[in-house]
Amino acid sequence: MRIFYHPILGKLEEKRKITLEVDGKKIAAYEGEPIAAALLAAGIRVLRMSPKREEPRGVFCAIGRCTDCVMIVDGQPNVRTCVTPARDGMKIQTQKGLGKWAKKL
């Protein structure tokens, strides 16, 4: 959920709205905000399933250090969504295990 009004920070600044495609579904986002924030705003908190135990994971450190929030972004797995800015039309997928590469390796 977005914090549209914050008692200290005031009204949410209007930024350019963009659309992300997450596992085939379209969600609205603001340009430049971290992908993870956009997903959180859309109520998507499970970002990947771990490779060995296939357990759900989400945002943990939010500063790009723990690498727990990695997802497949535009066909590339292991993208740290908490520090990767959202851009219009990005295709984002929940990463299962090591993830599938769009490009043939």
């Binding site: 943990f60 450190c61 250090r65 723990c66 690498t67 727990d68 990695v70 292991n78």
Partner: peptide, 8 residues
């Protein structure tokens, strides 16, 4: 030895 290199 993973992606985060023992940070956490």
């Amino acid at each position: 030895m993973g992606l985060c290199q023992s940070h956490t």
